[in-house]
Nucleic acid binder design. Structure first.
Length: 398
RNA sequence: GGGGGGGUUCCCGAGUGGUCAAAGGGGGCAGACUGUAAAUCUGUUGGCUGACGCCUUCGAAGGUUCGAAUCCUUCCCCCCCCA
């Protein structure tokens, strides 16, 4: 498949106007491809990586990614992917969130050939009059046509006027950066289309838009910082690997398509293998390795895979066990668990012990009040398979 | 401005004087099973205590009562209808 066709179809739900964009690509135009990112959390996740990877594909064909950091819009809050209002953020919060963005984006894009813009530069100084002119371009009925607004309206949930304003801001961003194409998730369709109207009203040629499928997180909901179900680009290799392994089996191929740069043919082959009875776990291991390899490096990915297999398939202990130093003396198992940070509270520790989830030196212990002496001999304490610590009264290494 | 309906534990959502730390679902955590941290099933899900039990929680603040998430007062917030 030639690069332009792949560009226009891989992971793509809609391309408007498909024939227009295709023509410009074939003509060899150098296009400005816009992607807006609102700093709603400090970590970019694989859901965000979907359009970033597409941006990378554009970049590889010689086009210019224009990243609009929504330091203004992020504070206002876009509700388009939610069935409830999104709260407004403070300036400090937004600034803290976006501090690490460029580094994370740099794991995907070649930052030498990227334009970065901050939308507070033009949205901040805008006057009420200008806002009124923008607002005049849309009717209330149009706004309510948008399905998630209509749904909330019907259900009697609150929709604030400020949420109506959001698409105007995002749309104006396109004018400000003179976007030729804008990328976004399916949930962004309305905002992306608003950009076209607003550009038209500013005597610019309307941008083409491309939308992508939403990425499901491990809990079945859309991957979103708000839901806390994200796999972050910057997650350490082991964590990233583990989180991928926790995904539902049915998501494997979609993840390959949307969050990796694996060639399509390879994905097709894998689809066939799975149909032919390949254990989904094997496919998922490949996926996890692919993802960690992409956002870290292949060596990290291989090592993460080894450690995963060691801990979860062989049920062996990891090679490196964190050491916790506690004051010498007697303590109950319940208290020890909490003190060592393996349980968030003593009550929770008690529950874990009674539930049979706690092992001391490899043995399951269910006696909550078991007396233990913290001393120079290390104690191996485990909660489930993931939480492990070696307890000593002073550093074991000398 | 007038009338009506609401604000419950991480989320959704029951509960209308004691049997409520509060049904049910979701999510989380743990267990079983498993060539996955998948699926499925089970348990658990405010804090403190070895335990009896105690403390904090049902928008906020007061009050009634032996006793309140449940009744009263004031306040804050949300939704709908009418104007």
């Amino acid at each position: 498949m030639n690069p332009i066709d792949e560009l226009l179809t891989r992971g793509v739900t809609q391309a408007i106007d498909r024939s227009h964009i295709e023509r410009r690509l074939r003509e060899g135009a150098r296009l400005r491809i816009k992607l807006g990112i609102d700093p709603t959390g400090p970590l970019l996740h694989l859901g965000r990586a979907v359009p970033l990877l597409k941006l990378r594909a554009f970049q590889d064909l010689g086009h210019l990614p224009v990243i609009v950091i929504g330091d203004f819009t992020g504070r206002i809050g876009d509700a388009s992917d939610k069935d409830a209002e999104r709260r407004m953020l403070g300036r400090d919060e937004v600034e803290a969130n976006m501090a690490g963005y460029l580094g994370q984006i740099g794991r995907i894009l070649d930052m030498e050939r990227v334009e970065i813009a901050y939308n507070s530069d033009w949205l901040g100084p805008m006057t009420f009059e200008e806002v009124a002119h923008l607002a005049n371009l849309f009717s209330v009925a149009e706004m309510l046509d948008r399905e998630n607004f209509f749904k909330r309206y019907k259900e009697g949930k609150r929709i604030s006027l400020r949420e109506f304003l959001y698409p105007l801001m995002q749309g104006y961003d396109s004018v400000a950066v003179r976007a030729d194409v804008e990328l976004g998730g399916n949930d962004q369709l309305f905002n992306l289309l608003a950009g076209r109207s607003i550009q038209r009203a500013h005597a610019q040629e309307p941008q083409d838009i491309m939308t992508f499928g939403m990425l499901e997180g491990s809990d079945g909901r859309k991957m979103s910082t708000t839901y806390g179900n994200i796999i972050a680009i910057a997650d350490p290799p082991d964590e990233q690997f583990g989180k991928v392994m926790r995904l539902k089996d049915e998501l494997i191929l979609a993840y390959f398509e949307l969050t990796t740069r694996a060639p399509r043919q390879r994905i097709e082959d894998l689809r066939q293998s799975l149909r032919g009875g390949l254990n989904p776990m094997e496919a998922k291991l490949l996926l996890a390795e692919e993802i960690v390899g992409l956002y870290h490096c292949p060596e990290d990915a291989r090592a993460a895979r080894e450690r995963f297999l060691q801990v979860f398939r062989q049920r062996e202990l990891p090679d490196e066990i964190p050491e916790v130093i506690l004051p010498e003396g007697p303590i109950t198992l319940q208290a020890l668990l909490a003190e060592a940070g393996l349980a968030p509270s003593r009550s929770e520790a008690g529950r874990l012990i009674r539930g049979g989830g706690v092992r001391l030196n490899g043995q399951v212990v269910t006696d909550v009040s078991l007396g233990i002496t913290v001393g120079p001999t290390p104690l191996l304490l485990q909660v489930g398979r993931r939480r492990v610590a070696r307890i000593v009264s002073r550093p074991a290494r000398r």
